[in-house]
């Protein structure tokens, strides 16, 4: 079983992972984001349409709403655990 390619970004409260091979560029997540921090990416998704990416990285609270409204499981949001959080703050 082949793995899906992914692009991962470390944000303030967690990691944001996009699987371009699953993203169909519907934009539902962009509209649903409570902090309006998602936008279109240079990367193309599975149907050759632009995929999405976090554009306002500072505003992202890693709430995960984008991933729950993604019909294709193309987004993975993982919040940092206590340890990781501490590490980030120290840096």
């Amino acid at each position: 079983m082949a793995d899906f390619e992914y692009q991962q970004k470390e944000l303030k409260r967690g990691t944001f992972t996009l699987f371009p091979g699953l993203c169909k560029g519907c934009g539902l997540c962009i509209e649903k984001c409570p902090k309006k921090c998602l936008g279109w990416s240079e990367t193309l998704g599975v149907y050759g349409m632009p995929a999405i990416e976090p554009i306002n990285k500072e505003d992202c609270i890693s709430c995960g709403v984008c991933s729950t409204v993604c019909p294709d499981c193309a987004i993975l949001v993982e919040r940092y655990g206590k340890e990781e959080k501490k590490k980030k703050e120290e840096h």
Binding site: M1, D3, F4, Y6, Q8, T17, F19, G21, L22, K24, G25, C26, G27, L28, V46, Y47, M49, S67, T68, V69, C70, P71, D72, C73, A74, L76
Partner: peptide, 28 residues
């Protein structure tokens, strides 16, 4: 191990991306 999408275990990964249109509610 590479990062995996948060698909339910019962989903069949071999058939993903699924055949529904972009933004289709069936996926959710």
């Amino acid at each position: 191990m590479a990062v995996q999408p948060a698909m339910p275990r019962s989903w069949r990964r071999e058939t993903k991306p699924h055949k529904f249109c972009p933004g289709c509610g069936h996926g959710i």
